Deep mutational scan, measured.
Amino acid sequence: MTFKAIINGKTLKGETTTEAVDAATAEKVFKQYFNDNGLDGEWTYDDATKTFTVTE
């Protein structure tokens, strides 16, 4: 399945996608990506659209 992340950061904005077997796996991938890029913020997840949003 394809999962999307919308990034609303102070220094980084945009979208990225990942292929994962479930939402928990996708969340781990996205959180690692955000940690690697120095992002920290509020997380939400919309199961209907398979979209994570992080707002810094």
Rank of each mutant, 00 (worst) to 15 (best):
Met1Ile: 14
Met1Cys: 13
Met1Pro: 12
Thr2Ile: 14
Thr2Leu: 13
Thr2Asp: 10
Thr2Gly: 07
Phe3Val: 05
Phe3Trp: 03
Phe3Gly: 06
Phe3Leu: 03
Phe3Ile: 03
Phe3Thr: 05
Lys4Ser: 05
Lys4Asn: 06
Lys4Gly: 03
Lys4Asp: 04
Ala5Leu: 15
Ala5Phe: 15
Ile6Gly: 02
Ile6His: 03
Ile6Arg: 04
Ile6Gln: 06
Ile6Thr: 04
Ile6Met: 06
Ile6Tyr: 06
Ile6Leu: 06
Ile7Trp: 15
Ile7Ala: 07
Asn8Gly: 04
Asn8Cys: 15
Gly9Ala: 07
Gly9Ile: 14
Gly9Tyr: 11
Gly9Asn: 04
Lys10Gln: 08
Lys10Arg: 12
Lys10Asn: 11
Lys10Pro: 10
Thr11Pro: 06
Thr11Leu: 11
Thr11Val: 11
Leu12Asp: 07
Leu12Phe: 14
Leu12Asn: 08
Leu12Pro: 07
Leu12Val: 12
Leu12Cys: 15
Lys13Ile: 11
Lys13Asn: 10
Lys13His: 12
Lys13Met: 11
Gly14Asp: 07
Gly14Val: 14
Gly14Pro: 03
Gly14His: 14
Glu15Cys: 15
Glu15Lys: 06
Glu15Arg: 04
Thr16Pro: 02
Thr16Glu: 04
Thr16His: 14
Thr16Trp: 15
Thr16Val: 15
Thr17Ile: 10
Thr17Ala: 07
Thr17Trp: 13
Thr18Ser: 03
Thr18Asp: 02
Thr18Arg: 04
Glu19Ile: 15
Glu19Asp: 09
Glu19His: 13
Ala20His: 02
Ala20Thr: 04
Ala20Asn: 02
Ala20Cys: 07
Ala20Trp: 02
Val21Leu: 11
Val21Met: 11
Val21Asp: 09
Val21Tyr: 08
Asp22Gly: 01
Asp22Phe: 02
Asp22Ser: 05
Asp22Thr: 04
Ala23Glu: 04
Ala24His: 07
Ala24Asp: 08
Ala24Lys: 11
Ala24Tyr: 08
Thr25Trp: 05
Ala26Ser: 02
Ala26His: 00
Ala26Lys: 00
Ala26Cys: 01
Ala26Asp: 00
Glu27Pro: 00
Glu27Ile: 06
Glu27Leu: 15
Glu27Tyr: 15
Lys28Trp: 08
Lys28Asp: 05
Lys28Met: 11
Lys28Gln: 10
Lys28Val: 07
Val29Asp: 03
Val29His: 12
Phe30Lys: 00
Phe30Tyr: 02
Phe30Gln: 00
Phe30Asn: 01
Phe30Arg: 00
Lys31Phe: 04
Lys31Gly: 02
Lys31Asp: 01
Gln32Thr: 08
Gln32Val: 09
Tyr33Cys: 12
Tyr33Gly: 01
Tyr33Gln: 06
Tyr33Ala: 05
Tyr33Asn: 03
Phe34Glu: 01
Phe34Cys: 15
Phe34Gln: 01
Phe34Thr: 10
Asn35Ile: 13
Asn35Val: 13
Asn35Lys: 15
Asn35Tyr: 14
Asn35Ser: 14
Asp36Gly: 06
Asp36Val: 09
Asp36Pro: 03
Asp36Tyr: 08
Asp36Glu: 12
Asp36His: 07
Asp36Ala: 12
Asp36Trp: 11
Asn37Gly: 06
Asn37Glu: 09
Asn37Pro: 04
Gly38Ala: 05
Gly38Ile: 07
Gly38Cys: 09
Gly38Lys: 07
Gly38Met: 07
Leu39Gly: 04
Leu39Gln: 05
Leu39Glu: 05
Asp40Pro: 03
Gly41Met: 13
Gly41Ser: 06
Gly41Phe: 15
Glu42Gln: 11
Glu42Arg: 07
Glu42Lys: 08
Glu42Trp: 10
Glu42Ile: 14
Glu42Phe: 11
Glu42Asn: 07
Trp43Ser: 01
Trp43Phe: 08
Thr44Lys: 08
Thr44His: 12
Thr44Trp: 07
Thr44Tyr: 09
Thr44Gln: 08
Thr44Ile: 08
Tyr45Trp: 02
Tyr45His: 00
Asp46Cys: 07
Asp46Glu: 07
Asp46Arg: 02
Asp47Gln: 09
Asp47Pro: 13
Asp47Gly: 05
Ala48Asn: 10
Ala48Pro: 06
Thr49Tyr: 04
Thr49Ile: 05
Thr49Asp: 03
Thr49Pro: 01
Thr49His: 04
Lys50Val: 02
Lys50Met: 08
Lys50Ser: 03
Thr51Trp: 00
Thr51Ala: 03
Thr51Val: 06
Thr51Asp: 00
Phe52Met: 01
Phe52Asn: 01
Phe52Pro: 01
Thr53Met: 08
Thr53His: 09
Thr53Asn: 06
Thr53Phe: 15
Val54Glu: 02
Val54Met: 10
Val54Pro: 02
Val54Ser: 01
Val54Cys: 05
Val54Asn: 02
Thr55Arg: 03
Thr55Ile: 10
Thr55Val: 10
Thr55Ser: 09
Glu56Asn: 06
Glu56Tyr: 10
Glu56Thr: 11
